[in-house]
Amino acid sequence: MNLTLKIWRQKDSQAKGQMVDYKVTEISEHMSFLEMMDVLNEQLVNSGEEPVAFDHDCREGICGMCSMYINGEAHGPDRGITTCQLHMRMFNDGDTITIEPFRAAAFPVIKDLVVDRMSFERIQQAGGYISVNTSGNTQDANSIPISKHAADEAMDAATCIGCGACVASCKNSSAMLFVGAKVSQYALLPQGQVEAADRVKNMVAQMDLEGFGNCTNTGACEVECPKGISLENIARMNREYLSTTLKG
């Protein structure tokens, strides 16, 4: 198929960016979206132009690097997948595809489609851990049984890949789904209980400091999340937060 691409080009964080049109031809429907971008970039390199910078690494939906806003949707038109798992069979010959970076005040553009997600790092550093030394002198792994249900629910929350699609899809640029997922994972496990109150307080404080917006329950994040992280995690974080503030 032949396609027209409208891509956000921005030289660096200081530059003013703009949409630029490109044409690609003979794209196979079996290609992944990023392979289509490879074709475009090869074309640009061969004509001496600068290729489009975009983040990617694993190309199998798990590292969370890839982050394109395609035709107005984070990770594009398919559901339950990341940009790198999107295939060209979702598009038709002659289509025009708009490709932008994930946009949010807390995700400044570095270049073209690459954004800076260090705000996510700082939130994790504020409390996304259990304070246990890696000495190997911990107790036996089976000494505290954990119900299968709680372990499975913790696992579901823990599958967040930190991509930021939730933020990019939210009209308020809220990071509640991302933060809620981490808070929930630990809240559901006995090992996480000890520091639960401090954790939720510190992570939420950092989130506010980074300039992420408030949650107004539109649910857009859940729809676009490639890993199916559910809104239930936001509710759980709110309960955790409330109980710490009530306790003072």
């Binding site: 851990y129 911990t138 107790q139 049984p145 954990i146 119900s147 299968k148 372990a151 994972q185």
Partner: peptide, 25 residues
């Protein structure tokens, strides 16, 4: 020799390994 310690360590860190209905790994 050190392999068994790895599992203890990871569980203490909150790694949600699969469990059976009795709550064990």
């Amino acid at each position: 020799e050190v392999s068994a310690n790895i599992i203890d360590q990871c569980v203490a860190q909150g790694v949600p390994f699969a469990r059976d209905y009795g709550g064990l790994l």
